[in-house]
Design a protein around this nucleic acid. Structure first.
Lengths: 385, 385
DNA sequence: CTGAAAGCGCTAACAA
DNA sequence: TTGTTAGCGCTTTCAG
């Protein structure tokens, strides 16, 4: 059943049907009522493809993430989807899995489906596609520092604030030897976090030990492996900061396997504050970055810059959803940046450095500052039957 | 740049361009070469909307899940996406968040975007939409028992096998008092799991204690709350089985907060075997269900039943991707079912029942079978400094 | 094997 | 305010 069928049954022209379902205000209420009646009786649903073809706008927003399997992204996607649906849009998800080939395919799909905007929540898209997006007048927004280009827009995350809170929290507890497990350093957002960490360290007069700067990959496995590398070091830090929560959970696991305890043996701080962080054992101290903020800001940024020349936007996309509303308020922005706040959430993976405990027990034999008691001397917590 | 531009530069008609990029075999290789050259020089990307409009096929597969935030689904989605992309399709994700209103919107979106098939990985869609899908000749596939209807197809998960392995594993260790935390019982897949559990219990001569059958909601919070309810009971089970891994992680957290240990105080089994299960503390014994199987089977099922009347499918969707291949092999099936296997993965949350330890220590005072020693007598594991 | 032409279902001028 | 009409970019007859 198509628009013609509706028009025939409602005894109006197809143009009137089109205007009605698009909520163009100048339709005679009587006719509109007839049209709606037929629409509902027939359960008529407009063909999105046809609409998109003729109007040039797909009401589709592309969302490129690195890895859907990292719980941070589903949380982001959920917020994004809500933000999109609330405004009458849908999202097209692409996950790059950190491969630039896959990224290319994603970008191509976005272009082929004529998305009205793209939010890139992962490492750099190649210039080729940026040019292409620009050429087709498709706004795109990056999280994090990105190449400065026209039509480009970035959402700056205030990494420094949260990480600084984290480092200071550790310093106050007495930690001087802090390791950092980064994400893949090829990604700008990973780099930013690492640099923020280094800057904080510097600002409180600590210098980084290169051995304690490990490159991870933002996965559970990566976190575990990185921690194992650290444990193999001759001198151990007393606290570990991680570039994301998944890494931290991997670290927890490595320590569990090594029979070491958190926070007694090591303090640990994550980043992202995924929902799971509250549920790790012990619950993870971490730095929160608001997905909702990110998603909302990204959406608004994109919509506010939407193709200003072509396609006036009189109306709503769906036969049911009311119009989104205020999307044409903001003027076009070319290098605007919203700032996304971060802040420390203290839970139970941070405590005094293990050295501090020794200091409290004067009878204990003096131990090397940066090494743990030999594993053999420590009891296993749960011997299996 | 559109097909006409390509045609002009390649000095052929638009029909020839169309045939070329669709890999219709009857094109003169010389012309085809000219076309491809121009296509690449111009980086021409065909407009998906236009293709879909005229061909009636969108090369879009709908995937309806309940909650993207539960890590099982991202893992499923990832597999699904790969399966789809490998066959030249894309997926359109809808998450219902367990709300039937949202489900309705999802179904509507799928219809409006003219998906070529829908995989429903969550509780029942309303009949209205099933009829609609059927009417538009859109194949759909359910996971789990679903209303029997034409064009309907279900992927049967062999819950019984895995759950039975789990129950037997517990029984062998000596557990007789086993609780089960289900998912929302309004969902068929939750019901199936619970029923499988009950059947297993019965088959080894145990009868369920109604107090130990708790309805959860498949979330972390739900698992925690359910465990807290169990802990408040006068008689405690010695083992807990959960309807999914997230619930089990919630249980771990509740026990951690209550200062109880796994597996010393309670044995715990999850379901799904999400990647995270290997990383919980201690690592979670769980029942594995293969996402990849699920995704692949669902995709194949859908494609094999694809609209047989309309739209012959001569070719590939993309200018780059090679054709998927064997999708027209299987004949149309109306009530076929692939069976998805499940099996137990033993990690470290299962052990002897706490009672058994007491039996091994004859000097210990005899304790009530179903209650733990008072918390006050147990030492805290990690007193905070 | 190729090209001309007829739409796919809808929106947006433009006229009435 | 409403209807008529010309496409949107592409696939697919149908002649050549």
């Amino acid at each position: 059943m198509d628009i013609r069928g509706v028009a025939a049954l409602a005894r109006v022209s197809i143009a009137t049907v089109s205007r009605t379902i698009n909520h163009v205000p100048t339709v005679d209420p009587a006719l509109a009522a007839r049209v709606w009646k037929v629409v509902h009786e027939l359960n008529y649903l407009p063909n999105t493809q046809a609409r998109a073809l003729v109007s040039g706008r797909s009401r589709l927003i592309g969302l490129i993430v690195s890895e859907i399997t990292n719980p941070f992204f589903p949380e982001l996607i959920q917020e994004f989807e809500q933000a999109a649906v609330a405004r009458g849009y849908e999202i097209l998800i692409g996950s790059t899995n950190y491969e630039s080939k896959t990224m290319e395919i994603c970008a191509r799909r976005m272009l082929e489906r004529k998305v009205d905007g793209v939010a890139v929540m992962t490492f750099g898209v190649e210039d080729f596609f940026l040019d292409r997006f620009a050429a087709e007048n498709i706004p795109y927004v990056f999280i994090d520092p990105a190449p400065s280009r026209p039509l480009n827009s970035v959402l700056a995350v205030d990494y420094l604030a949260g990480i600084s809170e984290g480092v200071q929290h550790l310093a106050v507890l007495g930690h001087r030897n802090i390791a950092f497990i980064s994400g893949p350093l090829s990604r700008r957002s990973s780099l930013s976090r690492k640099e923020a960490f280094l800057a904080c360290l510097h600002s409180i007069g600590l210098k980084p030990n290169p051995d304690w700067l490990i490159e991870g990959d933002h996965t559970l496995d990566g976190g575990r492996d990185a921690m194992q590398k650290i444990l193999a070091l001759p001198h151990l830090p007393t606290a570990i900061m991680c570039s994301n929560d998944m890494t931290a959970i991997g670290v927890q696991h490595a320590l569990f396997e090594a029979d070491l305890r958190i926070p007694d043996d090591f303090s640990l701080i994550g980043f992202d504050d995924i929902h799971l962080a509250e549920y790790t054992i012990p619950p993870l101290t971490t730095i929160r970055m608001s997905c909702r903020d990110l998603a909302t800001r990204a959406m608004e940024n994109l919509l506010s810059r939407r193709n200003p020349g072509v396609g006036s936007t009189p109306s709503t996309a769906s036969t049911t959803q009311p119009a989104g509303g205020l999307d044409s308020l903001n003027p076009r922005q070319d290098q605007p940046s919203a700032t996304i706040a971060t802040r420390l959430i203290v839970r139970r993976t941070t405590g005094l450095p293990h050295r501090a405990l020794d200091d409290l027990r004067p009878d204990a034999s003096k131990q090397n500052t940066t090494s743990l008691p030999p594993r053999a001397q420590r009891q296993r917590r749960s011997a299996r039957p």
